[in-house]
């Protein structure tokens, strides 16, 4: 039974939710409203006047080959980041789950990267892969590989993917480990007695029982790859070379604040807003019926 606290008046409950409402209004509703408003206008080059264009900004964007390319870039980037970070995290979590001695230290060390801010993580990876002084670049050079993410778009993409996924592994690892440890030991033992070796057990028992965690992480990681990787991309590639790493969020920034095309930038924000909304709906609908077995 749900216990409900009933308030007599309207003022106390209003007062209690006010801080949250204020924060949401100031940091979400106001800027979101501004974005929607601005997306309907084109400002002149000096910002002195605005011309109403209706959905003109959207029409222009959707027919713009650069913008469509950015969609593809974002899809590739977020798929890779999600796969890499979840794959590695799952592998490490399975290892940690089997570990009996020293698992505390192992876990603590694995959680640390999560505490590193994206921009700082970006700079760390940038140093390692710096085309002139980077340690990894130097070793790759010894192996006969000429690493240059400043010129090579694929290498640039690889680098921002690795840097973005790296910090994310900790977060995914924690959830996967918790998910694994929530599976009753006796179920695994029963499967072992039934003749399932490690890989069969993982495929037929562990993975299906882990699927609620996996789905949750999938959505969260896609959202992360879409929106929270700005710092990494900004510090490492700045969206280049030749827009090879310009994901949608980065394009909002570069078109709006570098290119000074505020109308287009606002329209892009609105499109992103819809994407987030869509992802959130998917996530919530799933969480509601999360216990699927």
């Amino acid at each position: 039974m749900e216990k409900r606290v009933t308030f007599k008046g309207i003022w106390l409950p209003l007062l209690l939710v006010l801080p949250q409402l204020v924060v949401t209004a100031v940091f979400f509703f106001y800027p979101a409203g501004q974005a929607i408003w601005q997306s309907l206008f084109i400002p002149d080059p000096f910002g002195l006047s605005m011309k109403f264009v209706g959905l003109g900004n959207f029409e222009y964007l959707l027919s713009n080959s650069y913008y469509r390319a950015s969609f593809v870039t974002t899809a590739v980037f977020s798929t890779l980041v999600t796969l890499v970070s979840m794959g590695v995290a799952l592998y490490l979590a399975v290892l940690a789950d089997r570990l009996i001695k020293g698992s505390g230290i192992y876990r603590t060390l694995l959680i640390w990267p999560y505490a590193v801010a994206p921009a700082v993580a970006g700079v760390l990876w940038l140093f390692m892969f710096n085309t002139r002084v980077g340690v990894v670049t130097w070793y790759l050079g010894l192996l006969g590989y000429d690493w240059n993410h400043v010129l090579n778009g694929n290498e640039a993409m690889g680098l921002v993917v690795v840097a973005s996924a790296w910090g994310r592994i900790s977060y995914n690892f924690l959830f996967f480990l918790a998910g694994l440890q929530a599976i009753p030991r006796s179920v695994i033992e029963a499967a072992a007695i039934d003749g399932a070796r490690f890989w069969t057990r993982f495929r037929t028992i562990v993975w299906p029982l882990l699927s609620p965690t996996t789905f949750f992480l999938l959505v969260v990681n896609i959202v992360y790859a879409f929106f929270e990787t700005f710092g990494v991309i900004h510090t490492i590639t700045g969206g280049g070379p030749q827009q090879a790493t310009t994901i949608l969020v980065y394009k909002v920034y570069s078109d709006g604040f570098v290119g000074q095309d505020l109308g287009s930038s606002a329209a892009q924000s609105v499109i992103l807003l819809f994407i987030v909304g869509l992802l959130t709906v998917v996530q919530f609908r799933f969480i509601e019926r999360r216990v699927h077995y």
């Binding site: 009753p184 006796s186 179920v187 033992e189 029963a190 499967a191 028992i205 299906p208 029982l209 699927h292 077995y293």
Partner: peptide
């Protein structure tokens, strides 16, 4: 003791 059935 807890049957350890495969819940899925």
């Amino acid at each position: 003791q807890n049957y350890a059935l495969y819940p899925h």
